[in-house]
Design a protein around this nucleic acid. Sequence first.
DNA 1: AAGACGAGCAACCGCCATTTA
DNA 2: ATAAATGGCGGTTGCTCGTCT
Length: 342
Amino acid sequence: MVRPTCCDKISMKKGPWTPEEDIILVSYIQEHGPRNWISVPTNTGLTRCSKSCRLRWTNYLRPGIRRGNFNDHEESLIVHLQALLGNRWAAIASYLPQRTDNDIKNYWNTHLKKKLRKIQSSGHDNDSRDNPHHLCPRDGCRVGSHSINVSKGQWERRLQTDIHAARRALCEALLLDKTSPSSLLAAESSSKGSSNNDTGINVQLTSSAYALSTVNISRLLDGWMKKIPESQSPTSAVTKREIVPGDNLVLGGPASGLDGQHSLFGYNHRWSLNSFSGSGRDDQNGIVGIYKDESKPVPTLSMLENWLLDDGMMDQQGHEELIGMSFDDGSNLFQVFRGEFN
DNA sequence: AAGACGAGCAACCGCCATTTA
DNA sequence: ATAAATGGCGGTTGCTCGTCT
């Protein structure tokens, strides 16, 4: 029996979210938390299906999201993890707490896949001749002109080699930067300055969980307010409008292009950081959150590290003998990538 | 200047897993 | 125990914008 989903209901709106809808959703979640999605459309009056609301929240509105501008370390980590885990974007995203699975998936599909292809095709013809399919076969992302025309046994051995190579490469990556995801950000911060390079806004990364969400929300609010003079019913997404240094994250403030008298709420409401502080504040870290992403506990790398360490305890030689092929042969990709990124 | 084309990304779709009644 | 409801995930689509001709 084909079960109609909530999204099948007629009159459910589709397409890009408007800033008004975003605000409604954020307000509702601020009050009730990101749960019971099925009741969200009913309670908010949004003509969106519950699924759409959840996706909008998890992929765009929730606190702590960084968008775009993947740094080298993140790229490298994604490549390693993709080789390790396949296209399990949610799992990969759990190691990059500020990135969404959708964002990582898009980045992989639009940038990294291409990059890999480029790397493989230029200057590594010999390698690819010897190793026609050392790029993740799970993804079907084949590099070079060789088709995957090997026996299942060969393919499985190759897969094992890939996984083994990925483990080793990841292990090296972890050793290079023996840090938690948060210090990863600190490293990025120091390498690129303290500004959030996505927005140009100065954001202390130690308080990124809230600040960045504020940026997200402020961005949409700001863009929306900018649009009001042009049209009373803004429809286009404002997500591409970048906040420039000096934007003060105050709704109706100078950055909005309004004089402060025409606020969203009909009075001079200042949409400051504290506007969203209802659910608590971490004074020590200066983190002010709406709801710290309950649906996605911030992971550490410890699990992965443990796994790597466990593997390290194993008889690697035995492993390789079992696999029956040289280790180096499968790790080329990562060496190449590391070279490319460094 | 305008149309064609490609890249990037937000959002949708469909399937599967888990939870609930 | 079972079916329905809900949530989560990965693949894909289609829109927007920038670049090229």
